[in-house]
Design a protein around this nucleic acid. Structure first.
Lengths: 128, 128
DNA sequence: GAACGTTATATCCAATGAAGCATAACGAGC
DNA sequence: GCTCGTTATGCTTCATTGGATATAACGTTC
């Protein structure tokens, strides 16, 4: 039983960013196109575009700049802020995982330890 | 613009546990009943029960023991494992947040810094 | 200037999730 | 023994989400 950490960042009004959006950004950076990134992640262009757009709205600034028409029909690139966002997220992910590692291990030990052993029936009353 | 960390733990085959399920467990511990916990969280009993059940399945052992009938109609209590699970999750949440804090701050600075400033149009080509 | 692949957007539809409602079993308290 | 609140479960909507498809605009390349 493996246990990994999954991190997301909650922004104040309403907006989250988690591993999915960050992966998408990385794919856009790698492929130079939203649609190619979508294909790589087996995600519809529509969804990929919506995710990109929602990030731009949440952060109040675009995470990618795009171009219609052109060499291969157009394309998209990460903005400097988009790249920073990826870097920050990965950094946070890394340090959080490091800090949590021993506790995750302990949790797994506890899971194995009690394996359906003690589940005392409830005797006294709880707070009603 | 506030940024908080939100943590969830991914278990190997398929199973996640995040803030929602942990909150629910805490409410069950506090109130001594699944339905009361559901009400407190404005969640249907159905859903609360399903979440509890899914946790039991994911971990291969119950996180709460329940009793039908009785003093106030029945009730539910956390198993020792359930309590340990809460404690571990909160611990992980705490150390992860501590480790991530400076980077979250940095991210917020970066968000403010670039506020729609530089979004250079794409000139060269990307990896096609 | 025609072709191509992409962005951007609208529309329709399927899948999923969750709420709501209904019901049975249960057991302490009155 | 009747009531009451809870567990446990089924079933029936209802809303949200995401996929699929269609279309227009666009600009390099041929």
């Amino acid at each position: 039983m493996m246990a990994r950490l999954s991190i997301r960042i909650d922004l104040d009004p309403q907006g989250r960013i988690g591993p999915g959006k960050i992966d998408l950004l990385e794919w856009i950076g790698r492929t130079g196109s939203i649609s190619a990134a979508g294909r790589a992640m087996k995600m519809s262009y529509r969804r990929a575009w919506e995710l990109v757009d929602s990030m731009g709205q949440v952060f109040g600034q675009p995470v990618v700049v795009s171009q219609t028409g052109g060499r291969h029909g157009g394309g998209a690139r990460l903005t400097p802020f988009g790249e920073q966002l990826i870097a920050r997220y990965r950094m946070i992910e890394r340090v959080a995982a490091q800090a949590a590692a021993p506790h995750l291990d302990a949790l797994q030990d506890e899971m194995r330890a009690r394996d359906a052993a003690d589940t005392a029936p409830l005797g006294a009353d709880a707070t009603p």
